[in-house]
């Protein structure tokens, strides 16, 4: 098993946000997490990626059988976890090229590999840029600086392609994308899919799931996974809305 989240309880400033989340992801799978605003989807993603400021009060997360919560965030990334941010930050003055080269070589170093040669690196840049139809104009600029909302999201998928993670968590990568961009991003994600890696997409729209077809859909509601199912669940959700979930959970 690639990722195993067991009974995860997380608080921010004493307020409990995640209230016993369970989630299992195997290699080769695509999972979708849906749920109303403010139920803790981004929180779950951030805790898996190792962002500070969260208090883990109960539970554990295993990644390839290793205790993830013991690892600093960069080690998690080096171990193959990638987070596509809901709100990517800008880093003025740091070129995308330099940023990616540093990241890629740090990951290679962790695995005992030599830094990638400039030639191979540039070839990889070109290949992956084309995958998400990102123009060179963007990759020559500073990290996310002055990028439009949609460009930032494409840039996340570009980085994912560059770093070739084992587990990619994409937090609302589809929001803010126009129809064409959505198709391009989804195509990119599908292209990167292998039997050795897995993707978790967090989304509000079933539309994305027409392009990235999930094996499992989970509904996160008030800090818990209250419902899991196949891709039909997304359609059902869209039809019935979250009130339906509310009633369902109240009945139990």
């Amino acid at each position: 098993m690639l990722l195993q989240v067991k009974n995860l309880h997380v608080s921010i400033n004493g307020k409990e946000i995640l209230k016993g989340v369970n989630l299992e992801v195997n290699k080769g799978e695509v999972h979708a997490i849906m749920g109303p605003n403010g139920t803790g989807k981004s929180t779950l993603a951030a805790v898996i990626a190792g962002k500070s400021g969260y208090e883990i009060t109960q539970g554990e997360i295993l990644y390839n059988g290793k205790n993830l919560l013991d690892m600093p965030p960069e080690v998690r990334a080096q171990e193959g976890i990638f987070l596509g941010f809901q709100y990517p930050v800008e880093i003025p003055g740091v070129s995308m090229t330099n940023f990616m080269r540093t990241a890629l070589n740090e990951i290679r170093k962790y695995h005992g590999q030599e830094p990638m040669s400039a030639k191979d690196f540039l070839a990889r840049m070109t290949e992956k840029k084309d995958l998400v139809e990102l123009t060179s104009k963007l990759t020559n600029r500073s990290v996310n600086e002055g990028f439009s909302g949609g460009e930032k999201k494409k840039n996340e998928i570009f980085q994912m392609a560059m770093l070739d993670p084992q587990l990619a968590i994409l937090d609302e990568t589809d929001s803010g994308l126009d129809i064409d961009a959505l198709r391009i991003v989804a195509h990119g994600v599908n292209k990167l899919k292998t039997t050795e890696n897995a993707t978790v997409v967090i989304t509000h729209y079933q539309r994305l799931l027409d392009y990235i077809v999930p094996d499992f859909v989970h509904v996160l509601f008030e800090g818990k996974v209250v419902l899991s199912g196949g891709k039909e669940l997304a359609l059902e959700l869209e039809e019935k809305g979250y009130d339906w979930i509310k009633k369902e959970t109240e009945n139990h």
Binding site: A49, S52, P72, A77, T102, A103, E106, Q159
Partner: peptide, 14 residues
Amino acid sequence: SEDQLFYCQQRGIN
């Protein structure tokens, strides 16, 4: 910002 640092760390940069 913390967010800038975390963004870098999430890409494997200490």
